[in-house]
Design a protein around this nucleic acid. Structure first.
Lengths: 342, 342
DNA sequence: ATGAAAGCGCTAACAA
DNA sequence: TTGTTAGCGCTTTCAT
């Protein structure tokens, strides 16, 4: 299992390492066409493969982009990662993925791992608003190329791209209200996620616009899992609290909510409508009963990559904070129409 | 953005590089406790991070495991990748993922990329039975550590781990028959996927066992997408071909099949039952109407990692071909019971 | 216990 | 056009 090196080829051909290197790099101006040919042939014959580790050590760049995501089970993360890969592959970059499992200490570990591994840039969606804030801040201050996406840290002087959670939330709740719902549950996420707060804010504003009084009992803060969604709805039903719609922070919560409703023989969406925001159009296939607003993941990923590559190229490049204002597509059962409100 | 090196620490402390290296490595026998302390403190102060690229170049190992999968949208791939990551992280390995998108030429590119990148080992699930066979064969012959999982290449002298597609298929179809189905559609995958053939074989054997004549019109070969599933069922319905169950090769086909049935106002599973094999227990949440057999992904991943690490350690280790005979769990709507038949 | 030096495989500045 | 040399950051043998 010993690899053929540039020196092996040089020795075999009785020329110098540098000529081989140049020939292999296709340096037309500094090496004769004949040696280029001879080297190429010999390399092929001997099964030479360029040792990227050595190249990287020398170039002080690893051509690796790291992605840190809180979870990787939703279509959102999946599609984001896939899009990034496709975007950077042609440029010779590879992509390393690390999952924080919604745990700040794991996030911290991943960060360390990536720094040790000398990734050239980092795309991160944070698990927690403040937990690793200082660490991220140091990284940013040292001019390390990093771009936040989707779940960002507030007021950090760093490039980011995210969707307008508040506004989308507002429109989705407005959509529910317009289709006749009045008692809308807000299954919020934990308050340490900025997006969750923004969405709850949008929820509140939509109610206000229609002069619907805010019933605190309809706001449930807590976990984001299937189980959390299921339990929350159970509690509401058992507590005799009346509601005709559930607006969930995550798709998984929505799944749990749906399960409980079905167990209690409630009809979706006649008795209770469920809605949430979703990563991809796939979800309308997968959860046909759940109304979902699609976020434009592909666009988000492309922009994130662009910002990151710029930063890698020119470390002094100014930060850019981009909020996606893509047209909103509402799919699902509370209404069949498509409203591109934004 | 210049990184602190071992030499920087040495200079700052007025000692040699080697002492710093030893101190950092915690070499108790060859360096005094006092310098260990001084070096450690200084390293922390200066924000030193070990340059893994240099370490790897010297060690001639990259501590990277590559995974090549045909797709990454199903829970199966996801869970496999996640499990592998968790398994190798403590051992200092990182995981690089490449997606072939069911395209042999992309698979080939990924393979090249990984070889150039000098991954220490490869976990691969192939897109095609034969397309890159020669290339894989060369790799195997050169004793490169590689383990195939789930979708393997027949008769390749290389370690592999997969589930018993034929047998699981047999039991699933048997399950359908026992619950009263007689005219079972087989939405097969393309014939260049070994697993698809094995499953169709299981399908045929189950029919034989119950003396149900094989109706060729019920066997549809083709693509694996949502659309393929939807179209196949449309064709059958339009062709006036009678059926009471659909056995799908992929979850996505099942999704498409479900869509068509619902569009035609057929009730699942009363009119037509849908079943398939699935990656994880998650699918029973997501597709409650679809009967699914769970494959033991986690076990598959763990075994694959074990085999690969053995091979990396001892390149001459003999190949092992493992077929998982885990207990089969049928979940879903054709029957609520749990049959652990294997 | 510490230091000097070599070398992992590669590229590039400089020399010829 | 080609060769020589140095060096990327690290570990390790061999001297001291």
């Amino acid at each position: 299992m010993r690899y053929v090196t540039i020196k092996d080829i040089a020795d075999a051909l009785g020329i110098s390492k540098s000529s081989v290197s140049r020939a292999l790099a296709g340096d037309m101006r500094n090496v004769s066409p004949s040696t280029i040919e001879r080297v190429r042939a010999k390399a092929l014959e001997m099964g030479y493969r360029r040792n990227m580790t050595a190249v990287n050590l020398r170039a002080k760049a690893n051509k690796i982009i790291g992605i840190i995501v809180p979870e990787i089970t939703t279509p959102f993360s999946m599609e984001f990662v896939t899009t990034v890969q496709e975007a950077v592959q042609p440029l010779g970059y590879r992509v390393l993925i690390a999952v924080s499992s919604e745990d700040p200490s794991r996030e911290r570990q991943n960060l360390d791992m990536f720094e040790n591994g000398r990734v050239d840039g980092l795309l991160v969606s944070v698990t927690h608003n403040v937990a690793n804030r200082d660490h991220f801040e140091n990284l940013v201050k040292s001019n390390f190329p990093i771009v936040f996406f989707d779940r960002t840290i507030r007021d950090l002087q760093c490039s980011s791209v995210c969707s307008n959670d508040g506004l989308m939330s507002f429109f989705l709740v407005e959509h529910l209200i317009r289709s006749g719902r009045r008692r809308i549950v807000n299954l919020a996420g934990p308050s340490y996620i900025e997006n969750s707060r923004a969405r709850s804010q949008g929820y509140r504003e939509a109610l206000e616009k229609f002069h619907i009084p805010l019933d605190r009992r309809l706001i449930v803060s807590g976990g984001m899992s299937v189980e959390d969604g299921a339990v929350a709805v159970e509690r509401l039903l058992d507590g005799g609290i009346d509601f005709d719609a559930i607006y969930c922070f995550t798709e998984t919560q929505a799944l749990g909510a749906k399960r409980t409703l079905q167990e209690r023989n409630l009809i979706i969406p006649q008795d209770v409508a469920i809605c949430t925001m979703s990563g991809t159009s796939l979800s309308s296939f997968v959860y046909p009963q759940i109304t979902a607003v699609e976020q434009n993941v592909v666009e988000m990923a492309r922009i994130a990559v662009r910002l990151l590559l710029e930063k890698i190229d020119i470390p002094s490049a100014p930060r850019q904070n981009i909020t996606l204002h893509s047209s909103m597509i509402v799919r699902g059962s509370t209404s069949a129409e498509e409203s591109s409100s934004l």
